[in-house]
Design a protein around this nucleic acid. Structure first.
Lengths: 239, 239
DNA sequence: CGCCTCATTGACCTAGTTCAATTTGGGTGG
DNA sequence: CCACCCAAATTGAACTAGGTCAATGAGGCG
């Protein structure tokens, strides 16, 4: 059930059977959410955290003007709101982009887990810090990269992240977003998203059709996006 | 010496004398950096974390094109690279924007500290999660807000953050950045920064002159920037 | 005094937006 | 299985926020 999480963790950290078991034991019931359902509501005190087992969700905020900005995409194996353990309430919400299956981890259990396995505490902390690193990379994209590069960059990011949890199919993967959702990630209008997709297609870099991204030329796509996977911290750690 | 940190922490968490003392005890020597000196270098393995005692620094990355994007500003009392404790190496660097004084905390000491005071572990984790929240708000700014609003928003953010550590002077505070630095925060050119500053001035919202921000009308500035301090997590917590 | 970085301004340009119309395709009820 | 519906995708034309280029002014300091 939490296999994707374990896949993700053991790619980077040495995880003993006992630790894996302890982690597994913190999970409580699972829950399902439909597309557009709110998984985590802004400003509400949390007593448990959510692990995304299946599906894709987005961290987002609305501006005064009613526009939505997506700040991060979550894929299977991601903690959707582990940061609510230290933060208690979140300043943003998390919404299902596709039907999602979620496992619940009570904060009280997380606390016990960390007390008994301080190393796991550090690993959990690590995982929230990768999210922060992804945020920083998005800041660079939004602040400096032209539309086509942002798009290419995002396609690369999701490719690498899905590959860790073995949810890619060669160079293609499912991305259950509309062009509008994509625009809300990239700070672009749907119209412009559509044009940039056409350009990626005509340059034979990548195709996005029927909720599926197919990368035609990964090195070229990375070049266009200025993509360097370093910020995903995929390398094994010392602990 | 670490008074600003304690000020910041005890604003939000109940901190016992013993915990404060334990925290104080993890600090080692202090170091000074001049403007433009690199405090934390990208990609280099860290064995200690830095606490900013005095001055202002910036988390930044360079794009292929040689442009710099600043992803966060650090003020007195901020941990500049506490996240290097879980991450070990950082994917970005931290640079002094003004002369800075920094205290060093060896990671080994942090580890001991957390082992003995799990609650402090959670508080430290919390502090890195506020950085992530600031990142998310910057994503919203860069993705959705027009230049004038981004600028207004940043001025509000720094005002609130400096007020916590009592480094404001009423509605004005020192912001040791050039207009270029400001542009690198906001994803704008210097030319446009200059025009937006003129506009804020002529609208009598805020003035930025000789490295000093003076807010003339805070509510109006917040309105223009779509600013809501919630994301800074300034409210007291339950732990 | 002279130099150098930073700030300021004007003129022109372009990436991305806005508005508005069509087309497409998947889902559903009969 | 087909007709219909509706959200999503696509395209063109006109517009604008912000960028680019280039020149000038102004403050600090050796």
């Amino acid at each position: 059930m939490i296999d994707r999480l374990l896949l993700k963790i053991s790619d980077r950290h040495r995880l003993s059977d006992e630790e894996a078991e302890a982690l597994r034991a913190t999970m409580r019931e699972t829950r399902r959410f439909d597309r557009d359902e709110v998984i985590v509501e802004e400003g509400v005190k949390r007593t448990f955290s959510c692990l995304l087992l299946e599906g894709m969700s987005a961290r987002s905020k609305y501006t005064e003007g009613g526009d939505r900005q997506i700040m991060e995409l979550n894929v299977s194996g991601d903690f959707v709101d582990l940061h609510s353990f230290p933060l208690e309430r979140l300043e943003h919400s998390v919404t299902a982009l596709s039907p999602c299956e979620i496992a619940l981890l009570p904060h009280a259990e997380i606390e016990r887990l960390i007390d008994r396995h301080p190393r796991l505490g550090r690993i959990l902390w690590f995982s929230t810090m990768v999210d922060a690193s992804i945020h920083r990379e998005w800041i660079v994209s939004l602040g400096q990269r032209p539309a086509i590069a942002r798009m290419a960059h995002l396609f690369c990011e999701i490719y690498y992240r899905l590959r860790v949890v073995e949810l890619n199919d060669g160079l293609s993967y499912e991305l259950p977003l509309t062009q509008r959702d994509l625009g809300e990630c990239l700070g672009l209008t749907t119209v412009h998203v559509n044009r940039m997709l056409r350009e990626l297609r005509s340059e034979e870099l990548a195709t996005f059709r029927s909720r599926t991204v197919t990368i035609e030329d990964l090195p070229a796509l990375e070049r266009v996006g200025g993509f360097d996977p370093e910020y995903l911290y995929l390398q094994p750690r010392d602990y």
